[in-house]
Design a protein around this nucleic acid. Structure first.
Lengths: 164, 164
DNA sequence: TAATTTATTTAATTTATATTAAACACATTA
DNA sequence: TAATGTGTTTAATATAAATTAAATAAATTA
């Protein structure tokens, strides 16, 4: 099961080692320390430290404090669905940011060429490119509506958590 | 714009070079040959060939036949939303396959330990693990319902393509 | 069928990424 | 404050991935 989880996480862009760290924490009954994880996954402490940081950054793992214990302890966020939604929202926002930035830089220039262009060839392709950019905006709008609904939980109105 | 598209595609796990190939085709007015692409992206023909194959495999590019021309020509699938949905459905199905396989292998064993286990410690953790696996199945069920709605187009009932 | 063009595969190289041992910084306790 | 335990950085190494030139295979034309 841990291997399968690690492999599945690879699809989401994490390295198999990091996936195994998550898998080990997922099935652990208690919070684990860096050293305990290190032993179970057979990696160096530095690697585990980096992996844990990545997992914390993506909110898949959190640090817990155990009284009397000096070492840090970590637990896995066990709600796969939450992890999934977190991942997606982040990914979609990132995509939007990248494309939007480029659109804002290029669209005015193409717009100008399209309306005031001197050469026939130029105005024609500029007009065509503007259409493509308009399509891009619609696409970005759609994925943002999806992302927002994932973040707010509205998506569960359409796809309930439990099938009746 | 081509750079931005390439960068955005990196999020979806393709290499920037392959992203650029797609970007070039996306803004090209006509279908392009391998050599024309090669010149525009400044890569070796072999790399372009591999990149094109990857893009065809993921249905982001298709080969078109131009009469009188010997070389193959390629065009980009311009519907970002379709590309997005294709990608997701494939990804979610892959994830389901991986986890399901592991579940089917391990669940019966843990089930057995849970009910007929001799040691108290064992039966307790087995029962707990079974719960986790049940949660996994529910998660897989949810993402499959999402994937199916993406494939069938049902998702557009809840998230229409054009905002009114 | 031979000659030529085109696309793909292979093997080697380059490049990027992940991993680690060792050094460091920070904290805790005696 | 000294001594030890803990986590993170750093610099070097090992591993994996992408890229290419050259060889091969497939297709087209003369």
């Amino acid at each position: 099961m841990i291997s399968a989880i690690a492999q599945a996480m690879v699809i989401y862009g994490v390295t198999p080692s990091v996936g195994r760290i998550y898998g080990v924490l997922y099935f652990s009954e208690d919070p684990l320390t860096l050293d305990e994880i290190k032993d179970q996954v057979a990696m160096s402490k530095a690697s585990v430290s980096n992996g844990i940081r990545e997992l914390i950054d993506t909110e898949m793992v959190s640090k817990v404090w155990k009284k009397g214990e000096r070492k840090d302890h970590y637990i896995a966020e066990k709600d796969f669905l939450r992890n999934f939604l977190n991942f997606f929202v982040k990914m979609l926002r990132l995509e939007r940011g990248l494309i939007m930035k480029a659109l804002e830089q290029t669209e005015p220039i193409i717009e100008e060429l399209s309306t005031n262009g001197t050469d026939e060839r130029v105005t024609k392709t500029a007009t065509r490119d503007l259409d493509l950019m308009k399509d891009s905006r619609e696409y970005l709008d759609w994925i943002m509506r999806l992302a927002n609904s994932m973040e707010s939980g509205e998506i569960f109105d359409y796809f309930p958590k439990k099938k009746e």
